[in-house]
Design a protein around this nucleic acid. Structure first.
Lengths: 204, 204
DNA sequence: TCGTTACTTGACTCCATAGTCAAGAAGATA
DNA sequence: TATCTTCTTGACTATGGAGTCAAGTAACGA
């Protein structure tokens, strides 16, 4: 259902062109966005909305009113939250030398992002399949990964029997793991990533 | 808390030596065990007890009465449920030729067991840390894995920088993955396991 | 066959989270 | 300042699972 029957949910992003919000409402929208950013960043996208409300100093009802629910709230913050991080990876990796380096660095950085940012992880895992901007972002990352795989296989540095779906799984898997096993240190986590990368290399 | 204040919970395993159950109670204990076996096998150890009760044709209260809760119920069925499967792996692998084969087959078979039996997976993941027989079983498997690793590293067929904790993680991880990603086919799952095994081999 | 006692039941409490809405609070406007 | 309208609130409902217990049921033994 829509958040309020009489009035469409204000698109809380950008400069709210539509019916213009009252000052307090505007303030709250900002506060909620900031709180959501903070809370989601720390605890992932599945944190109870009450917590976001508390952090924003408003009631849960206001969030539903202003945004319409978790998905819409996430859509409103996802860009600040992770989109940039993912785009950064794509860009940075694109500038590296050599297909193997590019392929491995992309995976490594993505996996580390998943470790470092629970929210980013939730995005990559498509924890919220109904969010459009989020799906688009995922697809971009996947397409790029596909490209790198192709390139690396053409150069004969990555096993030919690795499929694009395998890549998707490698990232999904890491996401699940990161969520469940919070105990492993970043160092161990990184070291184990290398085992996996090694297993994908073509045997020379 | 104990299941009933006036009488200790009958140890539902073996031949119930204690106060002797009435015929209907005895029947129920059996029925519940059978149902638990079936339900846990299919849906894992975290299935709501109501479901077990329904399958057994008794009320939830009876389960609490007879067993005292989920943990105790699991303890009562864990042996039939998975212990044997795990012991089988240990035994079968012990008879294989060559340290690399043994090491890899152990992991492969364990991972496949996790795929095939959600309940076994829950056990290996120590989903219920307070169950003793279950912990013992886990430890046995871990010890065996450690031994295989040692042996394989001594023969220089597995990378020297793989630690026993890495092994534990490899199994835990697979468990988490199997739980979360139900979509991947057994064939793909198996193929991906090979990538991982390859990454652990010593470079010759 | 009947009383005694063990056993079972299912309705109940408790907890945590999502989502709703009528009533009251506070900005905007004149 | 008064009035109108938007906005916020927090108590409410709903859901789903864990665990409990008084009251009813059925086995056993004499």
């Amino acid at each position: 259902m829509s958040p309020s029957a009489s009035q469409p949910p204000p698109r809380a992003s950008a400069a709210t062109p539509a019916p213009r919000l009252r000052a307090d409402a505007q303030r709250n929208v900002e506060g909620i966005r900031r709180a959501a950013l903070e809370v989601f960043r720390t605890s992932g996208l599945t944190t109870p909305l009450d917590e976001v409300a508390r952090a924003a100093g408003v009631s849960k009802g206001t969030i539903y009113h202003r945004f319409g629910g978790r998905s819409a709230l996430i859509d409103a913050v996802v860009d600040d939250l992770v989109a940039e991080r993912i785009r950064d990876i794509i860009e940075a990796v694109g500038e590296l030398e050599g297909p193997l380096t590019r392929f491995e660095e992309f995976l490594r950085r993505t996996w580390l992002l998943q470790y470092d940012e629970p929210a980013a992880n939730d995005v990559l895992m498509r924890a919220l399949p109904d969010s459009q901007p989020l799906a688009i972002l995922c697809d971009q990352a996947c397409d790029f990964a596909r490209h790198l795989l192709h390139e690396a296989q053409a150069a004969n540095v990555i096993r030919a029997d690795v499929t694009p779906e395998d890549l998707t799984y490698l990232i999904l898997e890491r996401g699940v793991i990161v969520r469940a096993c919070t105990k492993q240190s970043r160092t161990d986590y990184t070291r184990r990533l290398d085992f996996i990368l090694r297993g994908l290399r073509a045997t020379r």
